[in-house]
Structure formats: structure tokens, C-alpha cells
Design a binder for these strands. Structure first.
Lengths: 206, 206, 206, 206
DNA sequence: CATGAATGAGAATTCATTCAT
DNA sequence: TATGAATGAATTCTCATTCAT
């Protein structure tokens, strides 16, 4: 007679899976994929190496899930923002960029991992997808702005990619150099936001 | 009995060093850092693995030098372009971005490696420096444009970083996804160039 | 409060033990010892991994029991055959060999496992015993034939071992090579049978 | 300027490759494929684990080479024997079987490994080939005997397989059980030889 | 100075066995 | 008693670095 899996156990299982994901995420954020060995992940998650393989079929799949989760979470937030009421499409874009930037400055290395060369070519395909998915959010705002005549005609795909690249790079730079930047974080975000706004609108935001 | 290093020998040494750098560069460009093992580099350079260590103290240092050389070369070209006569600073910027983009689209994986996560965290610091150096060229154009009143006031550091990030991301995307993009390379470059021009000038380029 | 083991429970225990044995046997037959992991066995038996250890102290012991059971079953059949009335001892032998061969060609991989290298050296000792037991059946026929003067004098132990080895190898070969043999199964069995008959009798069977 | 590889070094390399092969062969012979881990092989060969991979691309390939070498060596000897002058084909067969048996009784487990279940299915294909190759030698003798009318008509393929199986089994049994057999080695070989002779000729050898 | 064989730590993954529930 | 998640030692294979020749 099979024992029913108790609610407590279910919880523990879900908890473990989560701890593994968080451990991997944390290690990737701190030191890139290179630092996220199965040993390191399992140690940080407080589990044995073998336990990882109960929850994920391979290291590659684990990484894919980490990226996916991070991107899903971020995209949900950004989508929420651009669907809010905004005086203009430019301001919708600015709000999204600002929101992302503020979060990225808190945990900057994960954003960095999005554009990192993967340990395993098998992750590569998925990483590209993630970035694509990621920039799709921005693409939507640009599309609307162009459709509304607020923005000049432009390739929305290219613009979205440029936006993602622009703020990613600008955000990563000061973090990676780990030296006090010449501009404060607040100022940095403001400048990034305005850069993007000018880029899509072709006008200086007021 | 210490032999004086003959001119011939000096030449051979320099030649070997160069071949190693070129071999590493070629391998990185083709398959990323992952493909550039010491074995592969030495084989491609026509030398032994041990010989590598006569010219470079470690793999890390070799990679650093490869990046440095690539960036130096690129920066020299870009600096040359922006120092030419241009009708406007916006057009100087556009010429530089276009030039870089065209080269990047020919050897896309090397550009990709610029923003790739390093094999060794020790490379990281230097990679950031390289990108810094890299964006300094664009910073100069922005500075001039702002000083001349052609561009609106803005943080030239942030703008330069954004520019580098923008075109890097936009260029890498189609390469990485290795699928025919919706826009042709020619169109892609044009769109990137205009994105950057709008971003710094706050106006739609004619 | 110790419950007396009910008849029902006894039955269930015996049933479980049997299902484990059958599951293991089936897996070994299909893919060799290599495929018969405790996980696979328990899954196929519809039990948990832990449950296996209630019925068998170790994987090794389980395998030993699987072999024992298979051999016991086969020996019972073969003994039945040779105890039947036969015109001659040579024909008794032929009937036994033919019977075994036909069954082996239906489930060839299990026969194969009899002579397979064991996963665990601890199984080895027992596997030898099984083959011994196995050849004892054939030994009896040879003994009778020699005693009756139908077969020439010979070491019955060696002859029995040779017989087992001969048909095992001949049966396994086409299976392992998994390519259509030059001879049909029917012909194969006939040839094996005659080989054995000639070997023990020193005459060509009519 | 490349240094020429000295004769001494060449010798050391060949020697190392040989030591690896011998180490693997010895371990397989002693405890089957299971005991021949890369660690064990390298330790026995007096090399590091990594060194193995300079000489063999994988464990599988190493095993294949071990089998191949053993079989090649044995086949060469047996072929030599059957090509000698013999009073009859039956005696040629007997000489070959006797020769093989005597060697097998000195290093018995390697013969055993020929019919062992492989660790890696990739080895399987090759192992079958080896056994085939092995029995081809005996097939030739049977063919000649049949052609000469000395042996009764029979499937030479089946007969050859049976012969190999017969003496393999008979030789392995006493060794594996590691208990003094009822028959001496000398007697054992004689009995095996006669079994095979009767089997192919259908007559009692004088 | 050049060579490249050798090293050996470390990587991902597997699986028999245990034990808290 | 039954469960199956967790363990962790063991496995194969890689590769930066060294050093005898």
C-alpha cells in the first residue's frame, strides 16, 4: 500500500528545487557560468551532487531553467509596466528602462550573464531565445510609438536589440570595473533612460 | 657563454609571438574562448605547447593580449575615421559605427568574444578595460558634438557605453541566432547607425 | 503491538518477491546486467527502490537468485526430458539439446546472460555453480550412454561442459551479431544437435 | 627549429603504449572489464590517468585494442599450427585445440573475457568480430576435413562455433571454480581434444 | 631555446544503498 | 511496512602547466 506523499514532503521537494535554482542563480550572478559547477551549486544549496540530478537532468538544463526563470520574471515586470497608462510611448519606454536599470544595479551580474558566452553550446540556443524574448518587450513599445506616429519610422527589431544592448552595457560597465563611477547610480539611470528615449523618438525628451 | 641575441633571432621570436596571437585570435573568432585551448593554439601556430609559455606566462595573459591587440587595432581604425573631415559630428559618429559594423559582420565571432564571459575571471578585469578603451573613441565624438552644441547635453560616458552596447547587441543577435534575419546586413547597419545618431543628437538624421 | 502475519500478507510478500525476480529477469534478458539497475528493477516491479532491500540484501544477491531461478527452471525441464523414454541415450541427449536450443532462441539474451561477465565478482562464483548445475543434467545422459556402452569411454564432466559450451556459443553467436545468419534457426538447432551427438557417441547420427 | 625525436624517446612511447595495453589486459584477465577502470589501468601501467588518453582516445578504444591484440596473437599461433603438416585433418584440429588449451590454462581469464558481456555496448560489436575471427581458424580445418571426405557433411560455421564454445567452457570451468578438479590439466586437455575430434569426425580417435 | 609527453586536479554524471517519514 | 529522496564515492574524460630531453 503506497503511502501518500505528505504535504510536508511536497513542500520540501519544491523547496529543494528552488534552493538549487537560487544557488545556481546566485553563483552565476557572482562569478559567471564558470563558477557554477555542480559541486558548487550543490554545496550552496545544501545538498549532495547527486541530488541535483533528481531535480534537473543535466547541468545544461539547470542553467537553461535559471535563465528562463530570470527572464520570465523580468519580462513579466516589464510587460506590466508598459501596459500601464503612460502619457506617451516614450514615457512608457522610459519607465520600463528605468525599472529594469534599478533592479539590474542591485543584482547586476545576472543581467550580465544574459549576454555571456555559455559554457555549453547547448545553452547558447536558449540564451539567444531569452534575449530575444527579453527585447520583445521593448519592441512592443517601439512598435506602438511608430504606429502612433510618435516615433520616426525604424526597424523595431533593430531598435529593440539596440535598447537592450545599450542599457545592458551601460549598467554593466561601472559594476564590472568595481570602481566608483563618475556618475551616481541615480544619474546613470537617468542618462540611460534619456539615451534610449532620444534614440527611438529622435527628439530630446523634456 | 651568453650569446648575444642576434637580429635574426629577435625577428624569429617576434614572429613566433605574433603567430601565437594570430592563432589564438583566429580560434577565438571561430569558436569562442572555449575552442582556444593551449593545445589548439599551439597546433595552429605551428609550435609546441611548451613554446606558448615562453612567450606568455599563462593562458589568461595570452587571452588578455589577444583582446588588447584586437581592440588596439580596432581603435586605431575608428580613431582614424573620426579624425577625418566630416560635415558634422553626427556624421563622424555614423561613419565610425558603420565602419565597425561592417567589419564586425565579416568576422562576427570576434566581436562576439568582446562581450563574452571570460574563461577566467582574471581576464574579466581586462576585458572591461578593453571595452572602456573601445568606447573612449565614441566618447570623443560625442564630446565634440556636445561641445559644439550639435548634440544636446548628456553624459558622454554613458552615451559612449550605450552606443557600444547598442551596436554590439544588434550585430551579435543575428550572428548568434545563426538564422537569416528579417533585415539584410546592409539594412541592419543602416538602422544601427541611425539609432545611434538619433540617440546622441536627439534628432532624426536626414 | 506485534501483528501476526496474516495469510494475506504472506501472500503479498511472496508476490512482491516474485515480481522483483521477474522484473530483474526480464531486464537482464532484454539488456543484460547493465540494464538491470535497482531503479529499473523496482520501477518494473511496481515497487520502490527501498522495497527491493526488504526482499534481497543486495543487488548481487538479487542477481544470484535470478540466475538460480532461471537455471532451476531450465534444469527441471531438461531433467524431465531425459527421464522420458528414448530409443537411445544419444536421442535423449539430442532431445534435451534441441529443447534447450529452441527455448534459448526465443529468449536468447537470457541464455546469453548465463555466460556473461557478472556485474559483481561476487556473482561470479555463483554463476559458475549455476552452469555446473546446468551441465549436470547433460552429464547424466552421457554417464548413462557410457555405462550402457553406447558411447565410448570419456570424462563425463568434460563432455558435459563441452556440450553446454558448444550449444551456448553456437546459439549466442547469431543473436549477438544481430545479423541474419547463413543458416535458419531450424537448421542451426539441427546442426548443434548433431554436433553434440557426434561428440559424445563418436558416430554419425542417422 | 624542431628537435628530432630521439630513438630513445620513440622507444619510451612505444613502451608506454605497450605497458598500458599489458596493464589493461592483465586487469581484464584477472577481474574482467569491471576491474579495468582507467584509474586501475593507469596505476598498473605506472602512468597518470591523463596519459592513457594520449595513447588511446577512450576507454572503449583501449579495450577494443586489447581484445584485438589478444585475438590476433592467438589466431596467428593457431593458423601456424593448422598450416603445418598433419597426418589427418582431425589431428590438425587436435593440435590446434591442444595448443590453445594449454595456453588458456596458463592465463585462463582472458579467454573468458572473449565471451564476457562488455562494459560498453560499443565494444560489443568488436567482441563479436573477435570471436568470429577466432572461430574462423577452426572453421578452416573443418572445411578441409569435410572437403576431403574425412569428416561427415556438416555446417562448418556451426561446428566452428561449437568447438570454440566447447573448449572455452570446459577450460574456464575448473579455473573459475578454483578448486582442484577431478581431472588433471593434462587429462582435461586430452579429453577436450577428443571431444572436439569426435564431434567433427563422427568417429572415435585412436 | 624548443619540444611534447606527462601530470593531476577537477569536471559532469551514475547508482547502490540508507533512512526519515 | 513501504516509500523514494538523499547520499557520496566512483567513473570517465579534459586541459593548463611543467620539465626532461
Amino acid at each position: 500500500m503506497a503511502y501518500r506523499r505528505s504535504a510536508l514532503m511536497e513542500e520540501r521537494l519544491a523547496d529543494n528545487r528552488d534552493r538549487i535554482l537560487r544557488a545556481a542563480r546566485s553563483l552565476i550572478a557572482r562569478g559567471g557560468f564558470r563558477e557554477a559547477s555542480i559541486n558548487a551549486v550543490s554545496a550552496k544549496a545544501g545538498l549532495s551532487t547527486g541530488a541535483i540530478y533528481r531535480y534537473f537532468p543535466s547541468k545544461t538544463e539547470l542553467f537553461v531553467k535559471v535563465l528562463q526563470a530570470a527572464v520570465d520574471h523580468e519580462c513579466a515586470i516589464l510587460t506590466g509596466i508598459i501596459e500601464e497608462q503612460h502619457p506617451s510611448h516614450a514615457q512608457a519606454l522610459q519607465a520600463a528602462v528605468e525599472s529594469f536599470s534599478n533592479r539590474a544595479l542591485e543584482g547586476p551580474h545576472l543581467a550580465y550573464a544574459f549576454i555571456a558566452e555559455p559554457v555549453d553550446p547547448a545553452v547558447e540556443g536558449h540564451r539567444i531565445e531569452c534575449r530575444q524574448q527579453f527585447s520583445n518587450v521593448f519592441k512592443k513599445v517601439v512598435q506602438r510609438g511608430v504606429a502612433a506616429g510618435e516615433f520616426p519610422p525604424q526597424s523595431v527589431d533593430v531598435a529593440a536589440a539596440c535598447i537592450v544592448g545599450a542599457f545592458t552595457e551601460a549598467l554593466i560597465r561601472p559594476v564590472a570595473s568595481s570602481q566608483k563611477s563618475s556618475v551616481s547610480n541615480k544619474r546613470l539611470v537617468k542618462e540611460i533612460v534619456q539615451f534610449c528615449a532620444r534614440a527611438v523618438s529622435g527628439s530630446v525628451p523634456t
